[in-house]
């Protein structure tokens, strides 16, 4: 038996799941729902790690329930910084995606290299793991966040997008400069995407576009010119 503890909306509850009843965390949750607690709510979709509906925290780490093995003594919680619908079900932060769509088709010829360049950024499944792992939300709920910025880079790096400027303009407030570059998002991404790296690229592109790090500006003003 494996002890599975779930942080439900009504309080924490522990269950005993037989070892052979489940390979994955998601199968364990199904076992609990079908045999022990029919009221338990969680989302379950493709079982292949590609629909992104089953992001949860397992032993304080963001995981896809369908892609995580059931190990000894697990504690499962809903993603942090998300509105909980019930138990492990949360509402995803679609609003942060803002104006992420192709604005103006450039008609330019695309090479194999161009397609390759945005391969990783377009692997995102919007599971919300990076959002939950991001410490910035502790202090700033309006932060655009890791997956949204990765998606911005997808369009900025796409040769097919002729209007790159509006994307860069849109990430100056509560965007690239608010990130602490701690790398938690990259560590938990089930698709191996590093939003931290993407944000660094976007910072460089912002500087090229004439923007500068507002944190440094604040520091400049801190000096007393008359000293």
């Amino acid at each position: 038996m494996v002890k599975v503890t779930v942080a439900k909306s009504t309080g924490t509850q522990s269950y005993e799941v037989p070892q052979d009843a489940a390979v994955t965390i998601q199968e364990a949750l199904h076992y609990i729902k079908e045999n022990l607690d029919p009221g338990l709510e969680f989302d379950s979709g493709c079982r292949s790690g590609v629909c992104g509906c089953c992001g949860v925290r397992v032993n304080e780490r963001e995981k896809l329930a369908c892609q995580s093995r059931l190990e000894e003594q697990v504690r499962i919680e809903p993603l942090r910084y998300h509105e909980v619908i019930k138990d492990l079900r949360v509402k995803r932060h679609e609003e942060t995606l803002g104006e992420c769509y192709l604005h103006e088709y450039s008609q330019e010829k695309i090479t194999g290299e161009d397609a390759h360049k945005i391969e990783l950024q377009s692997d995102c499944i919007l599971c919300g793991s990076c959002y939950s792992a991001c410490p910035v939300y502790e202090v700033n709920k309006s932060f655009l966040g890791p997956f949204a910025l990765t998606r911005v880079l997808k369009y900025v790096e796409d040769r097919k997008e002729a209007d790159k400027k509006s994307f860069i303009d849109g990430i100056q407030t509560n965007g690239v400069w608010d990130c602490t570059l701690c790398g938690e998002c990259s560590a938990v991404c089930p698709q191996g995407i590093s939003s931290k790296d993407d944000i660094n690229v976007l910072r460089a592109k912002s500087v090229q576009a004439g923007y500068s790090d507002p944190n440094f500006q604040t520091m400049d003003f801190g000096f007393n010119p008359g000293f």
Partner: peptide, 17 residues
Amino acid sequence: LDSLGVPFNRTEDGEFA
């Protein structure tokens, strides 16, 4: 779909793979 931004794989000459 390509014009909407689907990153289709390309050949070396830039054709759809």
